[in-house]
């Protein structure tokens, strides 16, 4: 995943832009595109097994949202079938589906984001604005494994001390609470030493200057511009009414949405936005390909390839060097 190697601000803005467009409109086409690329990205980030696993959890949710909306709403005109006195309309079903797809897409985008920015790395960009908070998140992640480890040790010694009899639910709960209590006291005691260490290293909130191991490179700037461009295009499309879509009483696309191909511009820009991570992957792959094919005698990157790529520049080549 090339996207991972970009500046955190770029990654954040990318996800923010996608989420903005996804959540700004209730439109079957946009919801569909967003969901499609969300699944694709999830697959690129965590692999096929985990993607299927999360879809396994999410798809029932989609079904539930769709059904509930169809049950609660009776505004649609196109009646599909009736059970008793209730009629179920295509419109209500469609609205539920779009709402559900939007929610699923949002959830998937969020989860891909936090997979990409593991351990709160996304807070690196908050470092300037909220230096203490971002430091504290980092500290929490430093303490979680230790806390688990100590919890295991306490569990071992308590079980050895009191026997591992947990047939009764009551003793089980009492045991869990005892464990957490010891854990709390122990962790706090250790934290006193951490506080000493912080003071020894001169921690003072006011003159701290957070350092993040990231730098702006040319390709970051280029891709940032591209993101901004595409999202502005999409937002203009939305503002001009390209995303107008009426669900009730009968679904139809108003003429103003199609006038001047507004919907197509919107959808096109959004497809480009959704596919951007893959474009970046392809760009990287082409560069790798070119550099591997290069022989000392015929040292040439195809000018055609170089010209085609949106974010060329020396930055990305420099990063390839060991």
């Amino acid at each position: 995943m090339t996207l991972k190697r970009y500046h955190p601000v770029v990654i954040f803005l990318y996800f923010a832009a996608v989420l903005l467009v996804t959540m700004l409109v209730q439109h079957p086409v946009i919801a569909g595109i967003s969901f499609f690329f969300a699944v694709l990205l999830k697959w690129r980030v965590v692999g096929v097994v985990k993607t299927l696993k999360s879809l396994w959890h999410l798809l029932p949710m989609l079904a539930i949202i769709t059904c509930i909306n169809a049950l609660v709403n009776d505004s649609g005109m196109t009646v599909l079938f009736t059970i008793g006195r209730r009629s179920f309309s295509l419109e209500a079903l469609l609205y539920g589906l779009v709402a559900g797809l939007t929610l699923l897409a949002v959830i998937l985008w969020f989860s891909s984001y936090s997979d990409l920015m593991e351990n709160g790395r996304f807070l690196a960009m908050l470092g300037r604005r909220l230096p203490v908070i971002s430091m504290m998140v980092s500290m929490i992640f430093r303490y979680i494994p230790d806390t688990l480890q100590h919890g295991r040790e306490i569990d071992m010694s308590q079980r050895a001390l009191l026997g591992s009899d947990d047939r009764h639910r009551k003793t089980k709960v009492a045991r869990a609470i005892r464990l957490v209590s010891i854990l709390m006291a122990w962790s706090m005691e250790n934290a006193i030493e951490t506080a000493d260490s912080m003071r020894a290293k001169g921690y003072q909130a006011q003159c701290r200057r957070p350092y993040a191991r990231v730098r702006w490179t040319l390709r970051d700037v280029m891709s940032l511009l591209l993101i901004v461009l595409l999202s502005v295009l999409a937002v203009i499309g939305v503002a001009m009414g390209g995303a107008a879509f009426l669900f009730y009483p009968e679904w139809f696309i108003p003429a103003r949405a199609l006038a001047g191909g507004r919907l197509y511009i919107l959808a096109g820009a959004f497809v480009a936005l959704g596919g951007l991570p893959f474009l970046l992957d392809v760009e990287q792959w082409l560069r790798d390909f070119a550099s591997h094919r290069r022989r000392p005698s015929s040292c040439k990157i195809s000018p055609f390839v170089a010209a085609m790529l949106p974010c060329c520049g020396s930055a990305s080549q420099r990063q390839q060097l060991p």
Binding site: V132, M136, Y143, I144, T147, V180, L183, S187, M188, A205
Partner: peptide, 26 residues
């Protein structure tokens, strides 16, 4: 968050929050 930042927290203010959060997370 901003109010907390502005209060210039000392380690003795920060660590209880960190530990309790880690504990609650676990």
């Amino acid at each position: 968050f901003i109010n907390f930042e502005k209060s210039r927290p000392k380690p003795r203010h920060i660590l209880p929050i960190v530990i309790m959060s880690a504990l609650a997370t676990v």
